[in-house]
Nucleic acid binder design. Sequence first.
DNA 1: TTTTTTTAGTTAAACGTTTAACCTATATTT
DNA 2: AAATATAGGTTAAACGTTTAACTAAAAAAA
Lengths: 354, 354
Amino acid sequence: MLKRLSKYIKKLNTKKKTTIKDIANVLNISIAAVSKALHDDSRISKKTKKAVKQVAKNLNYQPNHLASALRKGKSKLVGVIVPRTNSNFFSSVIENIEEVLNKEGYNIIITQSNESFKKECDNINTLLFTQVDGIIASMANETIDLEYFEKIKAKGIPLILFDRGENDLNVDYIGINDYDSSHKIVEHLVNQGCKRIAHIGGFKRTRIYNNRIRGYMDALKKHNLPLDNELLIESNLTIADGKEKMLELLKLKKRPDAVYVASDYAALGALQALKDKNIKVPQDIALVGFGDEPFTALVTPSISSINQHSAEIGKQAAQVFLSYTKVKSVKQTLNKIILEAKLVIRESSNTNII
Amino acid sequence: MLKRLSKYIKKLNTKKKTTIKDIANVLNISIAAVSKALHDDSRISKKTKKAVKQVAKNLNYQPNHLASALRKGKSKLVGVIVPRTNSNFFSSVIENIEEVLNKEGYNIIITQSNESFKKECDNINTLLFTQVDGIIASMANETIDLEYFEKIKAKGIPLILFDRGENDLNVDYIGINDYDSSHKIVEHLVNQGCKRIAHIGGFKRTRIYNNRIRGYMDALKKHNLPLDNELLIESNLTIADGKEKMLELLKLKKRPDAVYVASDYAALGALQALKDKNIKVPQDIALVGFGDEPFTALVTPSISSINQHSAEIGKQAAQVFLSYTKVKSVKQTLNKIILEAKLVIRESSNTNII
DNA sequence: TTTTTTTAGTTAAACGTTTAACCTATATTT
DNA sequence: AAATATAGGTTAAACGTTTAACTAAAAAAA
């Protein structure tokens, strides 16, 4: 064996990678035995297993994932599609998906749609082409046509949506209770004495923004505040949008005394507009954002916001995917997991402390 | 053919995926012909090509990437390792790497080290296991032991580092000129009339932070400013670190009149500390950050910073990788690409405008 | 007409695993 | 002692492509 080994040791210096065939040759056993030994199959003796593992180490053997994936029909790869990774929310969701899936031997391929429908379709094609075993996604703002997502389902590949989902699409979903979150915000602002509460929201067609808008309207009704159409604005919720829409609100004859913005980024823009116009926050106008991005705690005044439990969403999404891989029965009830969000009150809406 | 096709059309409803074998059966030709037709091989007639593509479409054929990757020995996957995706810098670099590589048929697998050496090693193992064709990485702060990176090189897999690299490691590198950037900052501060310039930097062992520190010291010398050791602080450069180290600087008997922080995040923390202590920025103390993260333009006062050309870095890194796949000759000179950074002057260091 | 060239394929092996089915020698049971 | 079980493997096919090497028929050249 030693002679055979030393012959193979030379191989280390060449480019060619070590395969189980090499190990089999060194030990003069079949490749099947090697494969089984590496997987601790019960039909291989301890002695052989030990020898195989030793040789594998010596030859610096690295299993060929492609080969086993092809044979087993499983790539052990999960695709993740997010609008962008550069928000703390998505970055944290991804981190937690990765953590849970890595433990089970899965790797993730992260792709960004940049909020573009076309890019999202490309991403889906790419992931299907790469033979991922499942897809976890949060939809782009633009997306209305669900054909591509249907395609995933049609192929029998588990699809789990989080945060940005769609009511029409019959898939697993993990998100927070947007409707209730709006209620919490409005209630808080009412408690602060606000009477004219505006909402800079996202577009109604997107499930989460629709829910936030409905929650906002129903909450106003509940607290006997009149619903004024000029106080409800739809937008893309970028920083620039927040600034622009806030300036529009400030032009109204009857200004709002509070603004609830459906995204922290837009809230940051709105805050800049308020500062530019020398309007005191929260005394003149109170401000609440959404998402609890770290910077909300760092700007002056700090911005009240809704914590979306990003870590929890990531973990649950991964778990739902794993449940598909474990259960043999194809028929499985869909998971619709709605987490309760938490309102974090900061300076921008707290008139008591100041 | 129609009869055969309709027989196969049923297959669409089953789980089994369509393969080139199915297409071959429908048209009664060999699978080799199908493979060639799909790749527009010159030895296949136009008629056959057309027929093959039509049937492929009808059967909803999707090439099995694993099979072709195994056969060709190329996974068409590139691994990307970054400390975290949630800064604009890394997110932008990644976006641009992806854009360039996608055009050439490559996909990327993004992994995060979370600045942990152990996680980084795990990431490398994972990527090697997944048979990536190359790795583009920015090292974790913690990393000193380069063994794992050597391993990549040893396997003959192209390794390209960006931003956080290492002088000792003989690999391709793309980054900005940190040394010069420090010079630009110091020069600017001197022009603003500052005479006691402090530096909250990263750890010297990391190449980029070392260069920034050296640049800072040499620039002081050049402008005949004394180098005071208590004005040079090493840290991890988190937001909290920035705040803490700034408070330390404020405790000095002889306070600085300007602080150059080696990261925007730490600069943000520093700014909070200054605000808490009611110190006017830039009048009492001027502040400059590093990285040109979007929030630097949005806080009050806005923070001057260094733009690192993230898009350019991403594109170049991808190009360097591609150069390995195209050139046959193994011997290739290493690329060390150093981009010139740009100082963006904002309120935090601009005494003229105020 | 015969030979050569071109066209349009076909055959079969290979990529590195996994796994169902089979086999043989030894140990155990009856 | 014969029958059965168990341990420890081996053989060969399969996963879905790609590709080098071969071939048959038709077209062009001689």
